[in-house]
Design a protein around this nucleic acid. Structure first.
Length: 803
DNA sequence: TTGCTCAATGGA
DNA sequence: CCATTGAGCAAC
């Protein structure tokens, strides 16, 4: 008997392995690994992935596969194996791993339907009411009509109704309706003679179609002839024309023209850097390269030429870019070189658009994919290279299950495909750079900029001094002067503000009461546009109070420095300057991000003010000044990577100035000018920063010296949360082996979010084997409680977020 | 995760 | 006495 191994769409530990199903005769030729099927599971029907075929099963009573959802596999063998690996690596369910690899449209949705088995009139009144004349209707309509569960149960028993489980896929192909001739021209001419004189539009349509041998889109036709669907429908009825469905891609970039580019000649340094990569491509061996190059050192050209080599060999390439950098400019650099060979995947696309881009890869219509994190799962079968640009970006780590890091997946895939991984960054993560120095990765250094321009001069301003000298504004004298200079010279300024930790909070000046969220331990943030207070964690909002809720004084004000407030201050200090503000509020609408940048690029404003999002990838030739309003804002976060993040951010934002002819300048305002992150960033000294920070990491036993596992515990009930956290810590402590250290349990930096109390344990370890047992034990021990009480317990290996 | 069974609870 | 609730468990 032919048997299929199926991973069903139920995220639960007892069935977290492939189940065996019989393949019925009529599906024998169709069922293969990588397709989706619908299978019975207990009393229900669920979607599942076929992950393999076999002849034997430990079970003798196998249920048959009920339905086949795909006729060609949507997962390759490699990806199926990768899902097992991902499950082990991130401690997620196999089904979650599989789903992470596919666009969301492949997620099944489930409907429960009620089927009437008896004549309508003979049914109880309540059932008739629920049915509303329908033979089949949604299950939910039963309870809406006021039927209780036990009533429903009786009806099922009494064979009045039946419940059917329906599994639906959402992967719809977008089609347009097109019109084409159904008969020969002779017949059309004949019809034209007989056509009633009143049918003016029909005549027009027919005459037009006479010269139209290809199908024409319905929309185009009606627009062209200024008519409606009516006359065309009549002609279809007469059998003269037919409507056909044409499959189209929802290509968001299709309309844009890309000026094609040729490979540039490489500098000596670039040449030296690219050669080992090309070797690895040619000789098909796996190797991870760390391409360490300052901004403007020509990393992209190395990527492009490596990809070209891969394509020449008939293979495929994946390029990962941080979400935020996936702008049309970025994409067009790849499209300009490789034309229609490129698919783009990022979160800004609609579900349908993502599906279409994925299909281009699946059908082998493209050989290069440029995308954000999840593009690492592109279903290529002949990978020749994987490139991760801005390797240090946090966005490569997925925050929900499966909590994978794209870099690790890349290494795994590349080793399966015997091809290189290239990690590029001006400020690599300590982990990567340490590995490169140890020889685990192959280090490639690009120490010079292609145009041989110096990096912009950085000036650090001590804001404490400013305050002492009586300057209480948020702009130092230096920054103010320099901004004025640029406005006069018609040059442009980029100002960055880290909102985090510096948002506008509301406080009463009389009694000191601050307004914090009812559900989270955080003060609410004031949004002037809507004149409302919002919580950034749970999205709760409320109107800005007129009087203090505590003492009823009207002296209630907002404090702190949000982008909105800086904008107001800018308007005050530089009344003649045009300002564009970019933050979550102004860029939430689709395409708003690009529009604002375009405006700035066209010189429609003097100052671009924004959060971190402006630190990346901006390239405007007229920008000659970059200002950082408060460099320390992220230095004091409860995160051992705070210094590293600051250094990266400051280095990156500095690179926005003077990228072309005009020389650039950078002003960093800070309250801690002596901090090594600030100081070394201003000197562009990565090596020194690396050495200094490595000492700190070694002292406190953080990565890259130790690996981390973060066990997050949260519960509605504070006491219960503490109890579980302690219990978890005990279990972990008794099950670890070798060199491990358990920290905690401690309250999370944000003790309460959305009315849940949060605790964490951190486990430091050297070898995964030493903690595997402990982690498994904790998960097993709390499994039941996780299912039915308010408890949540998650494990994050190599965590990036500690809040 | 969902749905089923069985036992306990409780109102009338 | 029966309906409702919840704990426990199985799912190829």
């Amino acid at each position: 008997m032919k048997i299929a191994k199926v991973v069903v769409d139920v995220a639960a530990s007892p069935i977290d392995s492939a189940l065996d199903y019989e393949i019925p005769e009529h599906f024998q030729d169709i069922v293969q690994a990588g397709i989706r099927v619908i299978v019975p599971l207990g009393p229900r029907k669920v979607m599942g992935f076929v992950v393999g075929l076999t002849n034997h099963s430990e079970f003798d009573q196998l249920k048959p596969i009920q339905e086949v959802m795909d006729y060609t596999p949507i997962l390759t063998k490699e990806l199926i194996n990768l899902s097992s690996w991902l499950r082990q690596e991130t401690l997620c369910f196999r089904i979650s791993a599989l789903q992470a690899m596919l666009p969301a449209v492949f997620k099944a949705s489930y409907d429960k339907e009620v089927w009437l088995l008896d004549e309508m009139d003979s049914l109880p009144a309540s059932l008739q009411k629920a049915a509303g004349g329908r033979e089949v209707f949604p299950f939910n309509d039963l309870s809406e009509a006021g039927l209780t569960d036990s009533q429903v149960k009786q009806y099922i028993k009494g064979q009045l109704i039946d419940i059917k489980y329906v599994v639906k896929g959402k992967n719809r192909v977008k089609t347009y309706t097109a019109v084409k001739k159904a008969v020969d021209d002779v017949n059309i001419l004949e019809e034209l003679e007989h056509l009633s004189l009143n049918a003016k539009k029909q005549r027009e349509v027919l005459t037009y179609m006479l010269h139209q041998d290809e199908p024409i889109l319905l929309k185009e036709l009606t627009e062209e002839l200024n008519t409606t669907k009516g006359p065309i429908d009549s002609l279809v009825k007469k059998g003269l024309l037919t409507m056909v469905k044409q499959e189209v891609y929802r290509d968001p970039f299709e309309t844009k023209e890309h000026q094609s580019t040729k490979p540039l000649s490489l500098t000596e340094l670039q040449q030296k850097a690219i050669e080992p990569i090309l070797d690895s491509i040619n000789e098909t061996y796996y190797q991870t390269f760390l391409l360490h190059g300052v901004t403007g050192s020509g990393k992209t050209e190395i990527y492009l030429q490596s990809i070209q080599r891969v394509l020449d060999l008939g293979k495929e390439a994946i390029v990962l870019v941080p979400e935020i950098a996936l702008t049309p400019q970025m994409v067009s650099r790849f499209k300009a070189r490789f034309g229609s060979d490129v698919a783009v995947l990022h979160s800004g696309l609609s579900q349908g658009e993502k599906y279409d881009e994925w299909r281009k890869i699946h059908r082998k219509e493209v050989r290069v994919v440029v995308g954000a994190r999840s593009a690492i799962f592109a279903p290529f079968e002949h990978l020749g290279i994987i490139i991760i640009d801005e390797e240090h970006e946090q966005t490569y780590k997925q925050e929900d299950y499966p909590k994978y890091h794209a870099r690790e997946v890349a290494k795994k895939r590349a080793s399966d495909h015997h091809c290189p991984v290239v990690l590029g960054s001006a400020t690599p993560t300590l982990e990567s750079y340490a590995r490169a120095l140890k020889g685990v990765y192959h280090l490639l250094e690009l120490t010079e900029r292609v145009n041989e321009q110096a990096m912009p001069e950085v000036e650090i301003v001590d804001m404490r001094q400013e305050l002492l000298q009586g300057n209480r504004s948020m702009f130092s004298e230096t920054l103010t002067d320099k901004i004025n200079e640029r406005i006069e010279r018609k040059e442009q300024v980029v100002l960055m503000l880290n909102r985090r930790g510096y948002s506008t909070f509301v406080m009463c000046r009389e009694c000191g009461e601050t307004i914090s969220c009812d559900h989270c331990d955080i003060s609410m943030t004031y949004h002037s546009k809507q004149h409302k207070l919002k919580c950034h964690y749970c999205n709760d909002e409320r109107p800005m109070p007129q009087i203090c809720p505590n003492c009823e004084s009207d002296a209630i004000r907002f404090f702190g420095t949000g982008t909105q407030k800086v904008e107001e201050a800018l308007n005050l200090h530089f009344p003649n300057a045009g300002i564009i503000r970019m933050d979550v509020d102004t860029t939430s609408r689709k395409g708003a991000h690009e529009k604002l940048l375009e405006k700035f690029g066209n010189g429609e404003a003097d100052i671009l003010l924004g959060t971190q999002m402006i630190a990346k990838g901006l390239d405007f030739e007229n920008v000659t000044l970059v200002g950082v309003i408060a460099a320390d804002s992220m230095l004091h976060l409860p995160d051992f990577r705070a210094s590293e993040k600051s250094f990266q951010l400051l280095t990156q934002v500095s690179g926005r100035a003077g990228r072309h002819q005009l020389p650039g300048e950078v002003v960093i305002q800070t309250y801690t000018p002596e901090h090594y992150s600030v100081e070394l960033a201003s000197q562009y000294d990565y090596e020194a920063f690396f050495n200094k920070e490595m000492q700190v990491r070694r002292q406190f036993q953080y990565p890259p010296y130790y690996y981390l596992a973060l066990i997050n515990i949260s519960h509605d009930n504070h006491v219960e949360a503490v109890k579980v956290a302690n219990e978890a810590a005990n279990i972990i402590a008794t099950h670890t082996t070798g060199n491990c250290q358990l920290m905690g349990p401690t309250p999370s930096p944000m003790l309460r979010i959305k009315d849940r109390y949060r605790y964490q344990c951190m486990l430091k370890y050297k070898r995964r084997e030493d903690v595997d047992q402990a982690l498994e034990s904790v998960l097993n021990h709390f499994q039941k409680q996780i299912n039915k009480s308010q408890l949540q317990l998650t494990i994050d290996l190599e965590p990036y977020h500690f809040m």
